[in-house]
């Protein structure tokens, strides 16, 4: 049993955070520069979130399994949650198959410095939006 009790809850928490990131120009602009469409497929609970960086604005589309993505990332919801605290070494997670990434990996690695500031945003976001019980790392 994962940390999140339902798909709805996890989608609400992480989707909300992705929308906050989309509204933070210092991070969003760098993601937009990549032009990538990235689909995250989470397990336990099951959620799909698509982040479309190909337009002028970051578009977060929950449940989008149709759009052709450049990169497909799959992982457990718990690993994803821990990742946004900055507590997951991406290379280690890929090596250990805690995350599986399909597509041009170097382009993903290149985004890491850009998303670094979000690691501090995540716990704050959880607390400010009534998700304090998930602020565990």
């Amino acid at each position: 049993m994962g940390l999140f009790e339902s798909s709805e809850k996890f989608e609400e928490v992480l989707g909300g955070f992705f929308r906050l990131v989309a509204d933070t120009p210092s991070v969003a602009d760098k993601l937009l520069a990549s032009k990538l469409i990235i689909r995250f497929t989470y397990k336990d609970p099951d959620v799909v979130l698509l982040i479309d960086c190909s337009g002028d604005k970051l578009d977060i589309r929950p449940g989008d399994t149709e759009t052709k993505a450049d990169v497909e990332m799959s992982m457990s919801a718990d690993i994803a949650h821990k990742f946004w605290f900055g507590k997951v070494n991406l290379m280690a997670a890929l090596t250990r198959r805690q995350m599986v990434a399909k597509g041009p990996i170097p382009k993903i690695l290149k985004l890491l410095p850009a998303i670094k500031p979000t690691y501090a945003m995540y716990p704050k976001y959880l607390d400010e939006n009534g998700y304090g019980q998930y602020n565990i790392y």
Binding site: V71, E72, L94, T95, V100, A101, K102, P104, I105
Partner: peptide
Amino acid sequence: EDYSGAHT
């Protein structure tokens, strides 16, 4: 489509 990437 199916296999590029890491540990697929």
